[in-house]
Design a protein around this nucleic acid. Structure first.
Lengths: 147, 147
DNA sequence: ATTCTTGCAAACCCTTTGCAAGCTA
DNA sequence: TAGCTTGCAAAGGGTTTGCAAGAAT
């Protein structure tokens, strides 16, 4: 089921709730900017606390959820069941290959995949195609033991 | 903590724990055989109960974990955070192409995609690869105007 | 008889929610 | 001031664990 998300300045917003800029939001956004790899809400929260920021865990969760919902950041699921977030680098369509152990991420540019997806859809008479590929694995730097 | 799993007749087993065949194990294995799609532990448990089998939820979990650990079944993480299992091998790995308008679904068999995904992962030194492709579009039977 | 397996209930972990106090616009 | 936002604590949902009773060998 599709979730309709209206991004600021995209469609007629009507008399909806106005977003407010808070110290907490800036702190999370900033830390996210400085972080390359996918990280969890708990990790972000711990780092914010460690650096002296006064931010609640629930707030971090709420914010990440909002940002992910509006497409501002990407999210994937880690091995231990938690959700990992990261500021999405390139605005163009691409996919991620994420290490389930350490969160190390590689941005994939796979033209073959794009054409393949298009072909598959057209073969079945579908139009207005869209696709999301989420790849995960264990990177070369991580122990490959199974558990 | 790595768990060493020795499959029957694979390596020297030594004086390890002997696996016992129980009614519960057979029930879960059988139901898994009859199920094409990825299913959750809870779903399997509910279906077992519904069919009159007396099996505990903890047992189902424990068993799926063991089977997945030994590679007997595949596991992926669903959107809601639960782990989904499926007997691997026979019912080949495949993806779905879903119509956003009517929900009509086509099961895709795309060997090209599988090899492409494997290649992409290996090129970046990843192992234990896993991928989920979600394709959506508008099928031939549906009006394709307004979106 | 031995020891692996079961399964209830409680524990865990991550995430969301209830809601009063705090803060932005 | 008005009403989003915050954040503590509690609730939720999925999965694991403790351990005594039960079953396979």
């Amino acid at each position: 089921m599709a979730k309709i998300v209206v991004m600021p300045g995209t469609l007629a917003e009507g008399p909806g709730p106005r977003v407010r800029v808070t110290r907490q939001k800036r702190a999370v956004a900033t830390l996210l900017d400085e972080t390359e790899e996918f990280t969890s809400a708990q990790d972000l929260h711990a780092r914010l606390r460690a650096s002296g920021e006064r931010v609640g865990l629930a707030t971090v969760y709420s914010q990440l959820r909002a940002m992910a919902g509006s497409g501002e950041i990407d999210s994937v699921r880690g091995d231990s069941g938690e959700t990992l977030y990261r500021r999405c680098g390139s605005p163009v369509h691409h996919h991620h290959l994420v290490c389930r152990r350490c969160g190390h991420t590689v941005e994939l540019d796979a033209p073959d995949l794009e054409s393949l997806a298009r072909r598959l859809g057209e073969e079945h008479g579908f139009s207005q195609l869209n696709h999301v590929l989420e790849m995960t694995g264990v990177c070369a730097q991580c122990p490959r033991e199974a558990d």
